[in-house]
Amino acid sequence: MTVLELKQAKKTFGTGHKKVEALKETNFQAQAGEMIAIIGPSGSGKSTFLTIAGGLQTPSEGDVVINGTSLAKLNEKKLSKVRLNEIGFILQASNLVPFLTVHNQMMLLKKVKKDTLNDQELEELYKDLGIEELRNKYPSDLSGGERQRVAIAKALYTNPSIVLADEPTASLDSERAYEVMELLQKETKSKQTTTLVVTHDTRLIDYCDRVFKMTDGTLREEDHTPKEGTAHE
């Protein structure tokens, strides 16, 4: 089943000779249960691609379709609903609310969204991410890596059909990084979500089913044979 589709989507910034084609015309499809890696050099357009796919910005041309809903026709209010209901973001900059404890970050989402993980599933998620001890701490009292793991918990807590992760392992040591990738992989398979991971770390692509490379705004699929089971022991 196609969960996410970009149809001739294109993004340009600025005009005249300052014009930047951050994303050249792109067609892209992702299925339920797929884990996809996006690699490429800095400034090539990976974040632009990811935020367009997640309805955080609209393409200059073309359309994005999520679970059959075309985003081009939606106003900001409906777009916000789509983000809440369908998408879990794990962003480059940590996206935590400074005055809420780790646990209350989740509770805020529970207030605004009916369908979230139940208490037991949340406990498991905390354990999987190794943050069960941190639940009553504020973001300012966490290390960068801990913050990143809380951000992952937040993205997964709302039961999204699409998880978009921009460098989710950037501030983690490699041991943690593998664990996080493993967790994302597990979630993707067990909940049949679609997961897009932007990464610089080519060792992490072993966890992914497909790999795309972004070069100067052009997205191209790479040859890739996913390894069986976990790639790293």
């Binding site: 955080l56 916000s80 609903k81 983000r83 973001f89 996206n95 805020l108």
Partner: peptide, 15 residues
């Protein structure tokens, strides 16, 4: 900035 972060997650203007 903080409100922007919450909006990115889909928390509505109304809330």
């Amino acid at each position: 900035n903080m409100f922007g972060v919450m909006k990115a997650q889909g928390i509505s203007n109304g809330y």
